[in-house]
């Protein structure tokens, strides 16, 4: 709060319910200019839900969002893109039936009215993937034919080359092999060095989080319960934090069982 004159993104008191289920209760979070923020938490903690609110996909039930100091009510994914937010979704949002290059320009197609400018999109897609070091020989193949890691690389490349100022990456490393994972981490480091984009990244591998992030937040029970610079925390602390809860729950259940069957 006392930090930075302009925060790239600021989230206040966000709540989101799906029917009877409360996915997010009261989320407060900020992202400084040029910063990489790691967001961790259990499966089902609500991380993806938060990302989808920031991407304009879901509307929050409560709370407000500030982009570069200005409050915005994100109306749609397109609107979020207009204010500079781009997202790699956990499910990647790729269309199997379309080619690699059409996926890379999905809903951002290059047009030579009234037709698609396929040649330009092919060239740019190839160029972006090569720049990233992703090995895809033929950008005209359908993404259905690619491996999980290649698909993920395409989804990441699509966002990274979108000129967004805020990138939201929901588990961009999940299906990556060691080499490709490093490739994405390097890419994030490059972006950080340039200092023009601010990034929220969700990951379950704490070593990777600590390697690439400036700061870590933990989402638990619909709230941010932990917020520290990476320099002041460790893999051990993060693991303990998430596992401690599980241990406590197990101990409580065990105690319960003992009480009910003496």
């Amino acid at each position: 709060m006392e930090a930075a004159p302009t925060q790239a993104l600021r989230v206040e008191n966000i709540a989101k319910r799906f029917g009877a289920l409360t996915a997010l209760r009261d989320v407060n979070l900020h992202l400084n200019q040029g910063e990489v923020l790691g967001l961790i938490g259990d499966n089902g903690a609500g991380k993806s839900t938060l990302i989808k609110i920031l991407s304009g996909f879901h509307k929050p039930d409560e709370g407000r969002i500030l982009v570069e100091g200005e409050e915005v009510a994100l109306r749609s994914v397109e609107h979020a893109r207009q204010v500079g937010i781009d997202t790699v979704y956990q499910d990647l949002a790729l269309v199997n039936e379309l080619s690699v290059y059409h996926n890379m320009f999905l809903n951002r197609e290059k047009i030579r009215w009234p037709l698609l400018n396929n040649r330009l999109m092919r060239r740019l897609a190839k160029q972006h993937l090569d720049d990233m070091g992703v090995n895809i020989q033929d950008v005209t193949v359908e993404v259905a034919k690619l491996s999980g890691g290649q698909r993920q690389a395409i989804a990441v490349a699509r966002s990274v080359y979108s000129d967004a100022r805020i990138l939201l990456l929901d588990e961009p490393l999940a299906a990556m092999g060691a080499k490709e994972g490093t490739l994405i981490l390097d890419l994030i480091s490059d972006l950080k060095a340039r200092g023009t984009v601010s990034i929220i990244i969700i990951a379950h591998n704490y070593a990777q989080v600590l390697q690439v992030c400036d700061r870590v937040n933990v989402l638990q029970h619909g709230e941010i319960t932990f917020d520290k610079p990476t320099s002041q925390t460790s893999q051990q602390e993060l693991t303990d934090l998430v596992v401690a809860e599980y241990r406590a729950g197990r101990a409580a259940r065990a105690a319960n069982n003992r009480r009910s069957n003496p």
Binding site: V77, D91, L92, A93, L94, V95, L98, H102, L106
Partner: peptide, 18 residues
């Protein structure tokens, strides 16, 4: 392209803002 996307991956197409 959007017609194919919406039929092929309705959720993904919507996530992409279509």
């Amino acid at each position: 392209l959007h017609t194919i996307s919406v039929g092929g991956n309705p959720l993904g197409a919507t996530e992409a803002g279509i």
